[in-house]
Design a protein around this nucleic acid. Structure first.
Lengths: 220, 220
DNA sequence: GGCAGGTAGTCTGTCGACAGTCGGAGGGAG
DNA sequence: CTCCCTCCGACTGTCGACAGACTACCTGCC
């Protein structure tokens, strides 16, 4: 008798699946920033109870993807230019810590190799916008993961929602010159040769450029 | 006719009040790390519905105060020594960014004065342990707020729950030599004289010492 | 005495319903 | 024509209940 063909039982809870679906719907641009997210409409569309989507929405609210408007109504979050600049400064501090810890690690070469693989994914994304976004954020998450500091990853992920709405609010309608392998390679190079100051400088410059890019002319 | 005597209508939702109550109960030590938090018990004790405490618990879970154990049961989070070290490294990066932005601000003297007031609160706390904790965390949160970067405050607050359980898991039963005004003054001094490198060094040293303190010998 | 099977208990997951509140449309008085 | 009052619709806040799942214990058989 074969036990092979039934390995994939989805043990995830309904709330988790709804959470994923909503997050994906927002970050993919199906809901534009500022759009109202009604519990009843979402519940009906997803075929689940209101309480379930409610919990998912609350989770998304804490992630910063949605924000509470008038009378507790939730809508897709939209960040001001000032918030975007602050957001990328925090990112610079977090990812600066990441390179710092990677440089200090004994297995630095392995981390460098993993990062090189991540930028290759970015290059392989080609012109697919969604794939490029995923690969770019994947690289930066990987940077945090390779630091070996789970709390750092946790903090970075806490910003991920806001990062995604920022990207989605601007880039879909123009050429994204921001996410290219050429912009990430210098970070790896500096890490590889143990140049801590240089690596941090590159990261901060990278983040400053991104902040300028996303605040340049806000798209309507 | 007087309109004065009725200004304070509490418009907070029941979930928010339950959230506050639970957070306070955990951070005050009423529930020890590892304790099981049952929805039914809490709902009965607070006199509210299960769904309400459920949402509050989910919020606390994202804050890191509680963590999911076996079969989705939630218990008060307990951090490993490695997690604590990572946590305080992230704090150092965040608060390092804070001093950096404060030093760069034109209203630096006002920020310095506000920080001085915060350490005075700490000194005024005397030997009251809970008050000292509040004053200490108040100082650090103030540091983030004075940076003028709301996203930085947001990121710091995301760590606050874990910080509090870490403090509560160790300090209640021994002399807390960690939170004293003498340890915070050097930060302000360095900020006041515009010594960015020095201020960051003090912050990192402060955080490293705290990490050592809280991982020294885990209390049982 | 040990083990397999059943069985009660308890916890969370999910749902549907009721109530309160806010905003707007519509009608009537001035 | 304008302003105010009233009613209606929509949305969220909160609740109680049902169902599924896992644990621990207890019993009967070998």
């Amino acid at each position: 008798m074969s036990v092979e063909p039934l390995p994939n039982i989805d043990r995830s809870t309904l709330r988790e699946r709804v959470l994923k679906a909503l997050r994906s719907a927002i970050t993919s641009g199906a809901y534009r920033p500022g759009d109202h997210l009604g519990e009843v409409e979402l519940a009906g569309r997803l075929g689940v109870s209101r309480g379930t989507v409610r919990e998912a929405l609350r989770h998304l609210q804490q992630e910063g993807l949605v924000t509470a408007g008038n009378r507790g109504m939730l809508r897709v979050n939209v960040l001001s230019a000032e918030e975007i600049r602050g957001l990328f400064r925090v990112r610079a501090a977090l990812e600066g810590l990441a390179v710092r810890e990677i440089v200090a690690r004994p297995d630095r070469p392995a981390a460098v190799a993993a990062l090189r693989a991540a930028v290759e994914d970015l290059a392989a994304a080609g012109e697919d916008f969604a794939a490029k976004v995923e690969a770019d954020l994947g690289f930066h998450v990987r940077l945090c993961e390779l630091s070996g500091n789970p709390m750092l990853v946790e903090s970075w992920r806490h910003l991920e929602g806001r990062i995604r709405v920022t990207i989605m609010n601007r880039d879909p309608e123009e050429a994204p010159a921001m996410m290219t392998s050429g912009r990430h390679a210098p970070i790896i190079d500096a890490v590889e040769r143990g140049d801590l100051e240089g690596a941090i400088a590159v990261v901060e410059e990278h983040m400053a450029a991104a902040a300028d890019h996303f605040t340049g002319t806000s798209a309507h």
